[in-house]
Design a protein around this nucleic acid. Sequence first.
RNA 1: GGCCCCGUGGUCAAGUGGUUAAGACAUCGCCCUUUCACGGCGGUAACAUGGGUUCGAAUCCCGUCGGGGUCACCA
Length: 480
Amino acid sequence: MRDVRVRFAPSPTGNLHIGGARTALFNWLFARHNNGKMILRVDDTDLERSTGDSMKAIIDGLKWLGIDWDEGPIYQSKRLDLYKNYADNLVKEGKAYYCFCTKEELDEMRNEAQKAGKPPMYTGKCRNLSADEVKKYMDEGKKYVIRLKVPKEGKTIVHDIIRGDVEFDNSTFDDFIIMKSDNMPTYNFATVIDDYDLKISHIIRGEEHLSNTPKQILIYEALGFEKPNFAHVSMILAPDRSKLSKRHGATSVQEFRDLGYLPEAIINYITLLGWIPSDGEEVFTTEKSIKEFTLDRVSKNPAIYDTKKLTWLNGIYIRNCDIDRLTKEVIPFLINKGLIGDNYDYDYIKKIVSAIREREKTLNEIADAMSYYFNDEFDYDEKGVKKYFEKNGVDNILKEAIKVLDKVDDFNLVETEKAYRDLIEKLDIKSGDLFHPTRLAISGRTFGPGLFDIMELLGKEKTIERIKKAVKYIENLKGE
RNA sequence: GGCCCCGUGGUCAAGUGGUUAAGACAUCGCCCUUUCACGGCGGUAACAUGGGUUCGAAUCCCGUCGGGGUCACCA
């Protein structure tokens, strides 16, 4: 087998969506598995729609995910001479020809074909123009494109690693354009030339390109190039089985990042959309997928992405994440929510993160769950109030709690718990009668880390202050 | 519309002629527990459909239906 060289070739017309990310990932896994090279190429021959911002977004997205490349980015727009030369040669060899048809003429052709109930194909009007005619039109300065002479008979077969052989009848293709009138190559033409020029061994791309592949093969054959191997990965669909778009919520890796997902969780998840290790274990490192990744194990079915599973995976990665890294990841979310400013106490935040992380699934959720550590003004959970604060005698229990907590000198997890346990015994109440209202008083919530963890983190002063405030609140409730 | 791809529970997904049709997420119930989460145990739930081939089909063939893609001087 020749050296493995693969490429990811986005067109810079938007950000990196999860489908593109998965295509990049599968290329990358394949390259790394085979000790091959990964090449990043930018298919920017559409001058109208290509933007630098979008390219930057795609590169950022890839880097953030940890997908790197060995060569590139290579911009097609900077290699125009290459395409032009090959196109001119094809014309010289009689394998392609100049076409001077105008947009209006083409539209008319299409309309007539439609009327006749035939597919809207180019009729080959300029296919047999004489040299004189060509010269005449050229001299007149008429705009032209270059079309490939497609054989009218025979079949073109795509040998696809994932799908097997796929046959196409050549009669279903017309003489398609390879060079546009602005001297830019069309996608199919530029792709073939670059893939050849860059010595790409395996073209791994989305299924939407499968129908284009026979055309590309026709170009390979006209040019006399050796063909690469093809593998078309199924598409990722929205939950309603339609094509992914903005209305389906987060679809780009940037959006998932802003929602608080970790890159390794996203990588793990999108790998799972079409591939699974031989042991069936669904949580795995990239080392493992690199080691095991082969194309013949890639699924043919289109996949619908399910954020629930992504979220579950993210929770696992959050729980296993290095605490310093996790803290650093959470801080921007905290700042964003206005919970902390630029001068923050890193060690304090780290302690809170470590108390909270195991019950949250995204960085965003962690930041939300941390609010009461920084913010004294919070509302009590409504259901919690009904359940715990409106119970007879809670105010007295909490008053007793204040007294015992006040006597705790070393205000830590062990000592506060000891004080509480003693109080429960003394008052002869159930632990929940004290724990639940206290939790609500100091955090406003009915769930969260262990009660004494919260107390220790909050410190004596704030803990007691908040319980006092809750007592007042409860007395107010009774007064009404 | 022509051509092409795909069709196993709500979702991902094992399975390649003989299985009680795995597993994971989600969902439901129970257990653990000061709460929530984690974890553990258990439940509900699938071979799109009709014909073949075969002793025997989720697995092979054909039709139908459904979904998707593509047919541009977009990529």
